[in-house]
Amino acid sequence: MAASTGFGRVPRAARGAALHRRIGTIAGAMAVGLTYIFLLAPIIVVIFTSFNPTTASAFPPRGFSLRWYREFAASGSFTSAFQFSLWLGALAAVFATTIGFLTAYAARRFVVRRRELVQSLAMLPVMIPHILIGISLLVMLTVVELPELLTLLLGHVIVCVPFTVAGILASLEAVDPGVELAARTLGASRLRVMWEIVIPLIAPGLLSSLIFAFIISFGDVYIALFLSGPGMTTLPIEIFTYLQWESTPVVAAITSVQVLMIIALGLVIERLVGLRKIIRI
């Protein structure tokens, strides 16, 4: 009895549920789509604006011109800031990756019992507001005689290290510890194992970490805000200072170049190890 009355009802209920589900799916897809538009719009708009022939940072642009790219190339302050950021980023990346590797390798193999502690301590600079790091280094310079350039560089290294540690730890997870032990039993010292076995095995991870650290250093504002000086102004600070007074599409041209460079580098990481591994905070 119960089964037969239920039988008549099931299809309608199922149809209702299916409709609900479809509405839910469509609503979800729209929400996700809108979020992506929100995330990408400002960047796309910047790229369009960079081809704007007029002075106003207006959108949609009225025509097409490379005027602002020429202006960028001709402006000494922006190009030298760009170059300075490139150098600073490259150096910071090398230091941060080296320290990140040593830390991650120690955490993974040699301080196994305190591993969690080491990992969370390595993440410290992510938890501290970067503005505080920048200011503290500036204040420190009034007490300790340290070259400003070195301080700026080390400040960048500090903010990059958490990411290099996290990324390299992820790469190390894929290395079979047995391979290292095998090398030990065959007569290799720990240093030898690190150099001949571990580093070649995680080379893609190290390269990704270098690139990622470079990107972070290149985009940093809060350290450079306090430690930039004459002849050592990074690109973001140069733009920030400029934007406080005026806003012409030359900024759009510069940032478009930067975005293009960063997307290219990001794709290299994606090919090497997958960006997901690097971003795991």
Binding site: V45, F59, T255, I262
Partner: peptide, 24 residues
């Protein structure tokens, strides 16, 4: 990830362009 990597300045500038009186 791409917007994250492009840095704070780039994205802030994007909003200046978007929200300006002649913006999109």
């Amino acid at each position: 990830i791409a917007p994250l990597m492009s840095g704070v300045i780039v994205r802030t500038y994007g909003w200046i362009v978007l929200l300006g009186s002649e913006g999109m």
